[in-house]
């Protein structure tokens, strides 16, 4: 699914965000990415959907070298990757349904498929009954579920989550985690950056820890050991 070989990321001011990352993630895995703020987690995640381009090294996504990818092909790479953020990034003037449909319209999906598929994913995230609500009428947890529905609507094989529970209380956080676990059990690979110690230490998964631009631990059934 994802293979990185000796990936370096050096920003213009000479900041070395990543220093020789080697990692392999298999299809169907659920991986936490942990580490202190500014350790390179965000950069690591952004490389996977080609939001950032590494200074050197090789990144293979589904066997394709994304460093060498022509710019115009990037959209097609991203159609196979869903992304979820801490701040949901919903469009405030659109309903839950419209927000999810927007992702399908953007890739010019046939209109007759859109309605059915949007209903399907809204049902998956448990918001079928709230589909005509605006984001402002939804709780934080519900908004995050809409954004997960949007990320999943085009059937990506990889779901990338950047601090998906960062803005949520514990109860809502767990709802989101059960949902992600459910999505993962249906075959979608999940890579999730997080600061949530309780979640990582309770719902045990593979943990990749990054400190100062280097992977310092990579364990199956790993642990969160930072105090923050």
């Amino acid at each position: 699914m994802i293979k990185m070989h000796d990936v370096w990321m050096v920003y213009k001011k000479g900041v070395e965000a990543l220093r020789g990352i080697n990692v392999e993630i298999e299809p169907g895995e659920f991986v936490y990415v942990v580490g202190p703020s500014g350790a390179g987690k965000s950069t690591f995640i952004k490389l996977m959907y080609r939001e950032e381009k590494p200074t050197s090294g090789v990144i293979l996504i589904n066997g394709v070298n994304v460093n060498r990818m022509r710019d115009w092909k990037i959209p097609y790479l991203r159609r196979n990757i869903g992304v979820v953020f801490q701040d949901y990034k919903l469009l405030p003037h659109l309903t839950a349904y419209q927000n999810v449909a927007f992702a399908m319209e953007s890739i010019e999906a046939p209109r007759r498929h859109i309605r059915r598929r949007v209903h399907e994913v809204l049902d998956l995230v448990g918001l079928y009954d709230r589909m005509h609500a605006l984001p402002s009428q939804l709780s934080g947890g519900e908004q995050q579920r809409v954004s997960i529905a949007r990320a999943m609507v085009n059937n990506p094989s990889l779901l990338i989550c950047d601090e998906p529970t960062g803005n949520l209380d514990p109860e809502n956080s767990w709802d989101i985690m059960y949902l992600l676990d459910e999505i993962n059990s249906r075959g979608t690979t999940i890579v999730m950056a997080t600061h949530d110690k309780e979640i990582v230490n309770t719902m045990r998964k593979r943990v990749i820890a990054i400190e100062q631009g280097v992977i310092v631990r990579d364990e199956e059934q790993g642990e969160y050991i930072y105090e923050d």
Binding site: Y49, D71, W72, P75, R78, I81, K89, L91, A151
Partner: peptide, 9 residues
């Protein structure tokens, strides 16, 4: 969002 979900340029 369009860029994230893979809308063509």
């Amino acid at each position: 969002i369009m860029r994230l979900v893979g809308a063509s340029n």
